[in-house]
Design a protein around this nucleic acid. Sequence first.
DNA 1: TAGCCTGATATGTCTGACATATAGGATTCG
DNA 2: CGAATCCTATATGTCAGACATATCAGGCTA
Lengths: 251, 251
Amino acid sequence: MKTELESDRDYSQQIAQTIRDAIVAGDLPVDGRLPSEAELAARFNVSRPTVREALKRLAAQNLIRTQRGATGGAFVNRLSFEQAQEHMVTTATLLLSMNRVDFETAVEARFALERACLPLACTRRTPSHLASLRAEIARQATAGLTDEEFCASDVAFHRALVEAAGNPVLSWHMAGAVEAMQPLMNMITYTARSRAQIVALHARLTYALAEGGLEDCYATMDALAAYTLELGGEIRARRQAKGRAGQGADP
Amino acid sequence: MKTELESDRDYSQQIAQTIRDAIVAGDLPVDGRLPSEAELAARFNVSRPTVREALKRLAAQNLIRTQRGATGGAFVNRLSFEQAQEHMVTTATLLLSMNRVDFETAVEARFALERACLPLACTRRTPSHLASLRAEIARQATAGLTDEEFCASDVAFHRALVEAAGNPVLSWHMAGAVEAMQPLMNMITYTARSRAQIVALHARLTYALAEGGLEDCYATMDALAAYTLELGGEIRARRQAKGRAGQGADP
DNA sequence: TAGCCTGATATGTCTGACATATAGGATTCG
DNA sequence: CGAATCCTATATGTCAGACATATCAGGCTA
């Protein structure tokens, strides 16, 4: 591992980059222990706080974990799909909100990706997957649900659908796409009528998945996408109204 | 913003979490300036190094940038698609390598997702997109390319293909899926014959995109996926051989 | 008016110290 | 002899104060 640092850039950033590269390259094995902060400080010829800042950067990316005590130190993390999903969701959420991504664009991407899971889900779905789907449908049909609860169950339904494809890499990608949409979906006000429509489509999708009609799966997914866009129309209208009244349209 | 901290957990982590929540919730506007380190230290009742560690955590996630000088400080970053893509690629790469994801699983996910871009790409591709695709094909056909160069061009081709779908959210997702595969693809040894085969499929895909045959696009993509799996077969064989000779099979 | 200079303010870094968690060995008691 | 307890070494977590350095703003000078 290189220990020389350029003098005109942040030391802590360079150190973090050096260690990160070592981890990515596989030079540091998973669960391996990094040298102690004092030793790293000596090796890079910087002070301990500087090393600590570098380590905190890595910790923020879930690349290492730290442990206090005699046998403590910084250890290389096995990046789990779960952790990565969490991270991906917050990143995706921020991306959508900070870049003022249209509802339409986000919905288009999300359903395009979800559509890609259908062929695999059709051949691999197990009874357990179908049970999860039906459980969420039942939940969505219960009366008295707030919009947020309905929306959360909707997300759970789609996550279960993605899980049915049986590919963890795919699931990871989709988690970001689906969950990041939740804040946008939460802006929708679900009437009893629209809920019934969505539940019906979910049920039809589940049926198609169970009884084996890929074409029907596609058609239902497309219908769901179209209906979501329709529901989202009011958001666009509201936003434009607000934009006109307030700070003007986007440049 | 809350300023009370639990005494039994890392202060720097709690502070980072507090500020992150504020950013995600939109309480801190993009390009807005955070209080100075000294002020944050006073507000949270901790020392400046502790605040700095918290800020470094946020900087590592591209949530803030810092600037020295009189008008300097920490500013909320507009999370750009580019930055997020970079981040996503390293995360995806680590996920694949650290979790020993099969070549098959990764390829399956990648082509499933890429397949999802085809309908959009078919209707939206511009002459400029097609030119990019053809440029990469030409590059791939040149003699004397190293395997890595060929592989890089392959990635560029697929990125251009995804771009043709004209959806930035989709592009962001796909960048992670496609680029993270590069280390795995680099393990393939491309013979002249396999290169010719790939170039031919790329050309056919580009033609289908240009002349408007979505079905042909799908078919070609599937052929490409199948051929990639075929090429990857040797990797699996090599890995199994190494596994048997060395540390044994996975538990 | 144009250019330079200086001070204020902020981050980047260093030094040294203390607090605290933890494992493992030494000690003591049943 | 065994088990519970204490002690100590080592590591991270935190603090305080200081200096170095980058940068802008405003005043000063030619």
